[in-house]
Every structure is written in C-alpha cells, then in structure tokens.
Design a protein around this nucleic acid. Sequence first.
DNA 1: GTCTATATGGAGATAGAC
DNA 2: GTCTATCTCCATATAGAC
Lengths: 224, 224
Amino acid sequence: MPKPLLSREELLGRLYETFSRYGYEGASMSRIAAFTGLGRASLYHHFPGGKEEMAAAVLDHAGAWFERAVFAPLEGVTPPRQRLLAMLDAIGRHYDAGNRACLPMLLALTEERETFGAAIRRLFARWIEGLTQTLCDAGLARDIARRRAIEGAVRVQGALALARALDDPRIFTAMAADLPQQMLTGADRSALWTARGTPRFPSPPSGGAGSGRSSRRGGAPAER
Amino acid sequence: MPKPLLSREELLGRLYETFSRYGYEGASMSRIAAFTGLGRASLYHHFPGGKEEMAAAVLDHAGAWFERAVFAPLEGVTPPRQRLLAMLDAIGRHYDAGNRACLPMLLALTEERETFGAAIRRLFARWIEGLTQTLCDAGLARDIARRRAIEGAVRVQGALALARALDDPRIFTAMAADLPQQMLTGADRSALWTARGTPRFPSPPSGGAGSGRSSRRGGAPAER
DNA sequence: GTCTATATGGAGATAGAC
DNA sequence: GTCTATCTCCATATAGAC
C-alpha cells in the first residue's frame, strides 16, 4: 500500500507529542512508531537522518506554530493588551496550562542543547523581540520594553514549568491573569496601536513623552 | 580493595551532576560509571534498585541541599530582604545562573514525573511555603504573601530555564537583581523580623496595618 | 567494596520485498 | 510508502572472583 497513512503535518504533530512527553532520549523509535502508527523502517523513509532529523523537523514545526500562534498576534494591529492576551491564550491552550511540556525548553535543559541550541535560541529570541515590539507599540521606551519582554517570557516559562512540577494549572492561569497588567504598567494610552510605523500625529508636537516606537531610545529612564 | 573510592556524599554529587546534565534517560549506567569512576557493577552494590533508586537518592540529596541552602535561610532571623538575597545567592551559585539545570524541574517535565512526582511536589511546595513565611514575616498578609511566593518561584525557575535556553546568564542575574524589591513591595518596615512568633510590641497599639504574621488573614486586601 | 565476565533485551539503523 | 527481517551495538542487570 504505497499511500501515506499520515500527512506530514499530522506526522510532525505526533512526533512533537512523543518528544515532549518523553524527552529526546526517552522517545525511542519503538515509542515513536507506536505513537505514529508507522513501522520503524517507514520513519527512516521520512527522516533518513533518524531521530536527530526528526527532532530538528519537529523544532521547525514548533517554530512555524510559534510564528502563526504567537508571533503573528504580537505583531498585529490590535491594541497591545489584546495581543498579549492572544499570546497567553494560544500558549495556555497549546501547553494545556503546563500539563504539556514546552519541547524547545525541554531540549534546552539537557545535552541536546549542543545539537539544537541554535534553533532554540532563535525561537526564544524571536519571541522576546515580538514581545518587545508589542510593548514599544504600547508606548514604552525600547530598553524598558526589552527588559519587560524578557521578564514576561521568564514568567510564562516559569509558570509552565512550575505548574507541571506541582501538577497545578492554576499556577499558569494566575500568572496569565495579571501578566498583561504588569507588562503594560506605565504604557502610554495614546500609543500607536493601529498604524505601527505610521505615526498618528505626522510630526510630534513637541515634548510628548513616550509617543513613538523609536523615541526615547538610548536613554535610561527610571522604571517603577 | 574493599575500600570506598568515594564517600556517599561525593557519589551522590556526581550522580546529581550526571542526571542533571543528561536527564534521566540520557544518563546511562556507562556514563554514570564514567562520571563517578566506579564500575557499573559497583553502582549496583550501592543502589540495588538501579537507576531508579539512584535518581530517588539524588532527589533526596537535592532535598537536603535545598533544606540547608534555601529553606534554612528563608526561615532565619535576619531581615526578610536578606533572606531572599541569601536564597538567590545560593540558587544562583548552585545552578550557575542557569548553566546547570534544576534536576527536580527536569524530571518534572517528562514522564519521570509519574515516578518521582511526589518528591518533586514536596520540594517545590516546601520552597513556596518558606517564601510565604518570609513574606509574612515582612509584614504581608498571608494570602498576598502566598501569591507573591508562587510568583517568585515562577520567576526564579523561569529565569533559570530561559538563561539556559538563550545561553545568557544575565537573564538570571537581572531577575535576581529586582526580585527582592518586587516581592517586598508594600511590606511593613516595622515587621517582626528578629523574633518570629514573639511580637516586638506585646500588644499592637491600635490600628497598626500589617504588623504581625497572623494578622490580616482571611481578608482580601487589594494588591498593587 | 570493587572488579571482570556475561546474560538478555531493546536501542538505532538498514536491506529489500511488495 | 509501508512492511518484515535482520544487523550491530549498547542498554540494564547479575554472578561470582578478589
């Protein structure tokens, strides 16, 4: 029967599931075969490089999901708070409030980082850039925005991890409930949400504090 | 030569190192033998239950370290801020600002949680209790203290993970730099640091807000 | 308490039929 | 594109000498 049992999309989904449940070393070819319904030999047809190629493909797949579900909303044209809520909703669903592990983070924690570190760093760096941009659009100075973006990523990852360790999803939901508020504290309500790159005011009147995305750069205003 | 090559303490340290570097599945008996300098058969002499018994012993060992280096300082008699700094210093050193993975968290992320989940939950729950008590001693109401304790644990774990994923220890140090301030915001400076359980003022004068550790319980005062 | 030697199973991976 | 059969190697684990 020379017909594919699973689409590549479905196959990658099952692979992601297996790797994130058992980790790289724990995801044996037999387990992967069981989870995908394919024979071990068939898996080598799709991924001649074996497990390493599978994990790399799965990380790409995760990057694509991230792009669609997290980065695109963060770059959107809706109000910054709404973008953050969309991100948290997507992440909360995808990781089931900590019940499922974040594979890139899982791979980063052990020696697999040596192999997949570049892809992992790209992914998290991109996330932080997206968050930074969102906060800039909300009217925060870039250096403050960046600091808060990192803090936000830290809290999301920490909440996912601790929720899983304590087997209590409320740790994630509690974090998600006040993250937008914390991240946006002090943001200018007249910031350029709707037309990023096209200032609502053709030329800033004069000393308008925190109006554009490239203003206030280089300075080190006190936060908090 | 019927003499031990390593003390049990040293042995457990090497085991911790191996498990946290490679994860449970990735830490093969051969690797463990190489890291400890013992033959595989010798390891079964110390741990007849094999890897599972080793991991359980290592988690106990981690719990004992945690007790000494984290929980004891948090329960100390020094000012709350100093206790938090001591905790962050101990954790920062122990995990090398994210360069080393936190083994209990690592084991929690994959299927090993089924086996070691109880020990892992105990450990993190105890940590959060310690943090809660510290914040109560600082004068925060218990419900607020507990919420902030969880938030603090979330941020520490998230910073460790993200610092490792991005290979940038500054993510941990930045978190550590303002965690005490954030956690203690609003704490009463006249709180009972020095003699917990023995109020400095035999009976609170009158409307002193946030003075004792058991006051303000049950209420839901607005935070932030 | 450590070692060498060994048993047995499952790991990753490949060849070739259909 | 999937399968069965098979390869090799390393995994965990044990027996028994020193």
